[in-house]
Amino acid sequence: MFISKWKEALICLKAGRVTLPYPFVPRPTAEGFRGQPEVDGRRCIGCGECATVCPPRLITLVDDGDSRALKVDYSRCTYCARCADVCPEKAIRLGNNYELATSQKEDLTMTVNLKMANCSLCGKPFAPERLLRKTGEKLTGGEFGQEAPEWLSWCPECRKTKQAKALGGVEAKDHV
C-alpha cells in the first residue's frame, strides 16, 4: 500500500506544473484550428451556399429592397467549418478566436450587406451585383466568348417568360 502511495506521489511530482495561467496568458491554438468563422464582407458575393449547408442554420440571407443581408448568429455556431468548405469565394474562414463569451447577445451577430442589381428588363432588384459580376467573369472566356450573356441581368421571372416565349416560338415552328 505504501509503495502505491509513494508511486502516486512520484508521478505527481515528476509531472511538475502543467496548467497554464489562463486567462492571464492566452492559450495558442493549433494550426488549422476551427474557431469563430470570419466572414470577409469584401469578398462575399451573397450566393448563399454557406447558408444552405450550415447545420444549425445560423447563416441567413435576408433580401430587403435593393440590399441583401447575410446574417450570422455566432451564438449557435458549432465550428464545423462547412461554410468555409463550400464558399466559392473563400470569403469565410474559421479563425483562431475561441473566446466568445459575452454578456451582450448582439456581440455575437454579424451582418454583411450587399447591393442588389436591378433586372434590366423589369427593373426589380433580384440578385447581388457581385454575384452577377462573378458569375459573368466565370462564364466569359467559356462558351460565351468574351461577353457576359445578356440573360445574366434578367431576373428569374423575366428569364422564365423570355424562355417560355422562345420555347413557344420553337414549338410553334415545329408544329408548322
Binding site: C12, F33, Y79
Partner: peptide
C-alpha cells in the same frame, strides 16, 4: 489526485486531436 493526473495525461490527446482535426 487521480483526477488531476489522469486528466493531465489526457490533455495531451486533446491537443493532439486539435492538431489533427482543428478542434
Amino acid at each position: 489526485t487521480v483526477l488531476m493526473q489522469s486528466w493531465r495525461i489526457r490533455e495531451q490527446l486533446m491537443w493532439l486531436t486539435e492538431q489533427i482535426t482543428g478542434n
